[in-house]
Design a binder for these strands. Structure first.
Lengths: 197, 197
DNA sequence: GCAGCTTCCTAGAGGCCCTAGGTCAGGGAG
DNA sequence: CTCCCTGACCTAGGGCCTCTAGGAAGCTGC
């Protein structure tokens, strides 16, 4: 009986493809095992359980996403950087819907803290915003606003939430313009609060 | 054998409570049946299947949400209306997480079209924005931006996505301020496009 | 008090997650 | 080259879930 040559990494990669094809909620150990021509119990040698698989997938996808964003943002600043960030973000969310959905699951907090991808995400986002000259806590507020808008937009779009005739790409470009203006006209805090983000 | 007196509406109401207590993904026919002291097969007399139940729950929650928003917005305009809208939205998302999650599922498009709650949502949102004097397509773009931001914020907050020390309520208030400024300084379209939203 | 509709039941198939324990392939040690 | 050990993969089985088919028991209108 030949071996399938499973490893945790190969499982995660296959799970990522499966997520994009069938939706993140259909990433299932049975389906994954089927894909490798193996019984589901066999997967437990490589992955603790379904939750573990999904967490690994989330971290994997988070890494992919920030790599693309980093590549897009590199060498740009200000509005150009913002547009590049936004474009890479939405592109990933739309072309890899399952992987993107994976990045949104709730993950154990100290596992998050130990993830290099998420640290990189924070660095790049805060870095991009430094051009706007915001100080804490405005900086953190702005980061939250950006993440929320990007995520909300992609989530609603993916869920078919935008029924109006208006072209979504044009709408998105406008939203990015609007965010740029928002960042330039940010309602600053009078009192200063320097706690780290 | 006494009857439980099930109806579709009672099932949906119980499902809503269950969603808030155990999470939307744990809204299950078995759990619901257990709650009524009834076998799961019995539920199929009132609800077509799990998908049908979840869809009904989504529409129910959508109606509840827009009712609260409408009540909050009533009699206000401009920034006050925006803040009231935002406050009611986030309040609902945070205090009724399962119901709120239900509102985000993908729903059959022509079922959406026939839902009065969703029409009301559109009316109220567009109505609130009329104070900012936007014309199409900017109006639709602005609505999309608002919905995205509100949803994205609540989704990230609920998923534990905001790790920084900064108080989330303060951050949210600032985001609403920023949105108000954005709406007042909206980057207008030169060319006019009047298609309905 | 009876007919018929509806509610709720039992029975059972199939999918999923996960554990316990067995078997056999492949690589290193002798 | 053979033995052995690790670990990749297996079978068996329990529990929870959805959903269908068909039967019995309560309620309503006559």
């Amino acid at each position: 009986m030949p071996r399938a040559g499973l490893t945790a990494d190969r499982l995660v990669a296959a799970a990522a493809d499966l997520a994009d094809e069938a939706g993140f909620e259909n990433v299932t150990l049975s389906a994954l095992a089927r894909r490798f021509g193996v019984k589901d119990a066999s997967l437990y040698a490589h992955v603790r359980n379904l939750q573990d698989l999904r967490t690994r997938l989330a971290l994997f996808a988070g890494g992919e996403l920030i790599d693309r964003i980093a590549a897009a943002v590199a060498g740009r600043a200000g509005k150009e950087a913002l547009a590049a960030f936004a474009g890479a973000y939405r592109e990933y969310a739309l072309t890899r819907p399952g992987r993107y959905a994976a990045t949104q699951i709730r993950i154990d907090q100290d596992l998050v803290a130990r993830s290099p991808a998420l640290h990189r995400t924070a660095e790049i986002t805060y870095g991009m915003l430094r051009a706007y000259g915001l100080a804490e806590p405005d900086l953190t507020d702005a980061v939250r606003l950006l993440r929320s808008t990007f995520h909300g937009y992609c989530a609603l779009e993916a869920a078919g939430g935008f029924g109006a005739a208006r072209d979504v790409q044009a709408s998105w470009d406008k939203a990015v313009d609007a965010l740029h203006i928002t960042l330039e006209n940010w309602p600053r805090e009078e009192t200063h609060d320097d706690r780290p983000a």
